[in-house]
Amino acid sequence: MEKETVRMKMKEILESSFSVPSLKEAVLTSIEEHTKQSDFLFGRLAGVHYQMFSENMKETERIAAVVELMMLAGDLLDDLVDQDSLEISWRQVPLATFLHVVVGLLLAGQKAIADLPIDDYKKVRAQSYILSRLLQSLNGQHMDVTNDIQTETDYLQMLKKKSGSLVAMACFVGTALAGAEKNTVIIEKYANDIGIAAQIDNDIDALYRWDEKNDIKAKKKSLPVLYMLASKRDNLLKQYFSNHIDYNELYAQKEKVIQQMEQEGAFYYAKVMSQIYKEKALQEIEKLDVDDRYKSALKTIIL
């Protein structure tokens, strides 16, 4: 499955979904920016699962494109909610247009599924998975932005909802459209593990990118931060989270904050936890009753 082919399918879906020139231009621009930044993980997962259970190649790229459209909508909304740095082009777009793009991407994706030349029952199943997993992710995202995290257990449960459910959505869209009814328990398990591992990696990355990501300023308790807050030693993050210093004081010492996290082992611990979840996912994939070439394809995506 070629990334360029998926990109063209995404544009094809959007070209037929929008008639207002300014809105069409905005959504098409979003595709170009998404293509530069994304490895199309979710689309690839949907495509592999469709092929894995149907061995039909014909609609693979379109199914991948549909999933990537919905993931792009979620990414844009997440950046707005998290107050992360949006691409320069989006800063110049009115909020109404931005929201129309997000909603339009979701609706265009759903319509593209409805238009697939696939049995209606299979399409209904796929759309049911989309709705249920997006709702789970919404709940997880709300836990994250409202700082409703106190312990590592809370954090991992939030990741399961926020990220694991999105990976599961991508996997189940392909599975449902292929008409597969078995292996769902196994797929759910490794999808959650993949999502948790990926989000831990993203959270580690965000702690090095203060000017682009709002995690520290918003006092998000990611795994490395929780590790530092539980430390018996005093550190700058403890002082910040207990309101003994403000964000400007913390930012002025950001290099020291990162140094403390590295020396204390916070990043190392988080990376080990990420690897544990990747290993768990690999073990579940081995249990699938499918051709080994598809297991290899899934492992390649994870690693």
Rank of each mutant, 00 (worst) to 15 (best):
Glu4Tyr: 10
Met10Gln: 08
Met10Val: 03
Glu12Leu: 01
Ser16Asp: 11
Ala26Asp: 00
Thr29Met: 09
Ile31Leu: 09
Glu32Pro: 13
Glu33Ser: 14
Glu33Phe: 13
Ser38Gln: 12
Phe40Tyr: 15
Phe42Gly: 03
Leu45Lys: 06
Ala46His: 03
Val48Trp: 07
Met57Gln: 14
Met57Lys: 13
Thr60Asn: 04
Thr60His: 03
Glu68Asp: 13
Leu69His: 10
Leu72Gly: 02
Asp75Arg: 07
Asp82Cys: 07
Gln83Cys: 10
Leu86Pro: 10
Ile88Tyr: 11
Ile88Leu: 10
Ile88Thr: 15
Ser89Leu: 08
Trp90Asn: 07
Trp90His: 14
Arg91Gln: 03
Pro94Asn: 12
Val102Met: 06
Leu105Pro: 15
Gly109Asp: 06
Gly109Thr: 10
Gln110Arg: 15
Ala112Ser: 13
Leu116Asp: 05
Pro117Phe: 10
Ile118Leu: 12
Asp119Trp: 15
Tyr121Val: 06
Lys122Trp: 06
Ala126Leu: 08
Ala126Tyr: 01
Gln127Trp: 12
Tyr129Met: 00
Ile130Ala: 04
Leu131Cys: 09
Leu131Tyr: 01
Leu134Met: 12
Asn139Arg: 04
Asn139Pro: 05
Gln141Thr: 05
His142Ile: 06
Thr146Asn: 12
Asn147Leu: 06
Asn147Cys: 13
Gln150Ala: 14
Thr151His: 03
Thr151Lys: 11
Tyr155Asn: 00
Lys162Pro: 02
Ser163Lys: 06
Gly164Val: 07
Ala168Lys: 12
Val173Pro: 06
Leu177Lys: 03
Leu177Asn: 04
Ala178His: 05
Asn183Tyr: 09
Asn183Met: 04
Ile187Gly: 01
Ile187Ser: 08
Tyr190Met: 05
Asp193His: 05
Asp205Val: 05
Lys213Phe: 11
Asn214Asp: 12
Asp215Trp: 11
Asp215Ile: 08
Lys219Met: 04
Lys221Pro: 02
Leu223Val: 01
Pro224Gly: 05
Pro224Arg: 04
Tyr227Thr: 06
Met228Lys: 08
Lys232Pro: 02
Lys232Cys: 05
Asp234Pro: 02
Leu237Cys: 00
Leu237Asn: 00
Leu237Ser: 01
Tyr240Ala: 05
His244Glu: 15
Asp246Trp: 15
Glu249Met: 03
Tyr251Cys: 11
Ala252Leu: 11
Ala252Thr: 14
Gln253Thr: 03
Gln253Glu: 14
Gln253Asn: 15
Lys254Met: 12
Glu255Gly: 12
Lys256Ser: 14
Ile258Asn: 06
Gln260Met: 04
Tyr268Phe: 13
Lys271Ala: 09
Lys271Gln: 11
Gln275Tyr: 09
Lys280Glu: 10
Lys280Ala: 05
Ala281Cys: 05
Lys287Val: 10
Lys299Tyr: 01
Thr300Gly: 11
Ile301Trp: 01
